[in-house]
Amino acid sequence: MTSTERPALSFCDIAKSYGATCAVDGVSLEIPRGQFVALVGASGSGKSTLLKTVNRLVEPSSGRVLFDEPYVAEMPLPSLRRRIGYVFQSIGLFPHMSVAENIAIGPRLAGERLASGRIDELLELVELPSEMAGRMPDALSGGQRQRVGVARALAGSPELLLMDEPFGALDPVTRDALGERVRALHAELGLTTILVTHDMAEALLLADRVLVMDAGRIVADELPEALVAGEGGEIAQSLVAVPRHQAERLKELSK
């Protein structure tokens, strides 16, 4: 294997159980550099748990995750997390810090000061005006907050972006716009991205590759086109059926 073909991320037989409940049940997977992967499944399918084994918010019961060669469990936790952008549903902006301080927190922890020009640049990436920098989080709308959340995740120039239901709490218009924006950033910045979602339409429209999880296992690993064409098995198809049905009804309405 040449270096360019080496995967950014490898999961080797990952399992995680909480007492008698098995959240992730032996997942092995490789994700190449630059890919945008969507991890889809019903609630409780184990997709979030699997995602969090990457930045070790969850420690797997067995198996290991390799990130660019090194074994994730052996990397110092702070530096591992600073190399990985993380965006999640409840956003988690620090309410006592301004937008600029929130964005700059990762580099600050690493002992760097983020120039105000860089903050403007990050705000611009997520399509927020630079005046926002001085505001406090409680003065922002939900969509603006999650944009700041994305900017914060990108501040340390990560190679890997993990997103755990990032648009779940947003209204549909904001959700759509921010999804598009993230997809564009993924390309612009050359990121490797994993998006966890329960919304198959979102997965199909944004991702290069869709993984379907059920009961802790990956039951389908397909290109979006293949899923739309009916591949991937029963569980994957039951998820694809929802947007397909919606699309058909809309088509009927427009006749």
């Binding site: 918010l57 702070p78 997390r81 999640f88 409840s90 988690g92 620090f94 309410p95 927190i105 922890l109």
Partner: peptide
């Protein structure tokens, strides 16, 4: 807020 704690861990 557990979200804030998760964020604190997430940013390292």
């Amino acid at each position: 807020d557990p979200g804030v704690i998760e964020a604190a861990e997430g940013v390292g």
